[in-house]
Simulated assay, not measured.
Amino acid sequence: MKSLILKTVSTTLLPLLILFSVFVLLRGHYLPGGGFIGGLIAAIAFILHAFANGLTQTRKVLRMHPGFLIPIGLSIAILSALAPIILTGDPLMTGLWYEKDIAILGKIGSALFFDTGVYLVVIGVCLTIIFTISESV
C-alpha cells in the first residue's frame, strides 16, 4: 500500500500499541485483560505496520521470525504451571505469589508468568499465520 498517511500513522502507532499491549498484559492478573488480549493487540500493531510498510520492513523491525516466540512462550507458560508442583508440592497451576510489592507492578506471581507465555504464543501464532498468508499472495 502506498499511502503516506497510513505509513506515518502506523510508524507512530506501533510503539504506542506495543506499550498498550504490555499494559493490558500486566494488569491482566488483577483485572480483565491478560496475555491473550495483550498478544492480540501487539500482533495487530505489527500487522498494521506490515500493511503500511511492507512485510520486509516489518520483519526488520521484529528482528526474528515470529514462529520462534511460540516455543519460548509455551516453555514459560508450562514452567509457571508446573512451578507449584516443583516448589511447594501444591496442585498444578496453583498461584504462587512473591510476598513483597514490586514498584509499578505490584505483587508478582505465577499468573503473570503464565500470562507472559500466553502473550508470546499469541503474538507468534498470529504473526506467523498472517505473514505466511501475505507471502503466498
Rank of each mutant, 00 (worst) to 15 (best):
G73K: 07
G35W: 10
S75N: 09
R63E: 15
Y30R: 14
S80C: 15
F51T: 09
I41Y: 13
A81I: 12
L19H: 07
F36N: 03
L40E: 08
F51A: 13
G38S: 09
T88I: 13
P66F: 00
L16D: 03
F68Y: 14
I72M: 15
I37L: 09
A42T: 00
S80W: 11
I78W: 10
G38N: 04
G39F: 02
L31F: 11
G33H: 05
I85E: 12
G54L: 04
I86Q: 06
G33K: 02
L25I: 01
T56G: 10
L79H: 07
Y30P: 05
A45H: 02
I78N: 06
F36W: 02
G35K: 04
L69W: 00
L79C: 15
L82F: 14
L31V: 14
L31D: 10
R63P: 06
I86W: 15
A43C: 07
A81Y: 12
L87V: 15
L55M: 05
L31S: 10
L62G: 00
F36Q: 00
G34K: 03
G39P: 07
L25M: 02
T56H: 12
S21D: 09
G28R: 03
H29N: 14
G67L: 12
P84F: 00
S75M: 15
L17D: 05
R63F: 05
K60M: 04
L40K: 06
T88D: 10
R59N: 11
H65A: 06
M64E: 10
L16Q: 03
L26G: 03
A77L: 09
G28Y: 01
D90L: 03
T58V: 01
L40F: 10
L26C: 06
A50D: 05
A81H: 09
G54T: 12
I70Q: 09
L74I: 15
L87D: 12
G39M: 01
L48T: 12
M64A: 15
L48S: 14
F20G: 06
N53A: 09
L40C: 07
F20Y: 09
K60S: 04
G54P: 11
S75R: 07
L31N: 08
G67Q: 05
I37E: 11
A42N: 01
G33T: 00
L16A: 01
A77T: 11
N53S: 11
L19F: 15
T58S: 11
D90Q: 14
L31G: 04
L55Y: 09
L79V: 12
I76D: 10
G33V: 00
A45C: 05
V61W: 06
T88N: 13
A50R: 04
A77V: 08
T56I: 10
H29A: 07
S75F: 14
I44V: 13
L16P: 02
P15T: 03
F51I: 14
L62T: 06
G89K: 02
L74G: 14
N53I: 08
I72S: 13
R27A: 02
N53P: 08
R63M: 06
L25A: 02
L69K: 01
I37Q: 10
A50L: 05
A81F: 13
Q57K: 14
P84M: 00
N53Q: 12
L19R: 08
L17P: 04
L74T: 08
G33R: 02
L69C: 00
P84A: 00
L69A: 01
H49A: 04
L26A: 02
G35L: 04
G35M: 08
Y30S: 14
M64F: 15
R27M: 08
A77N: 10
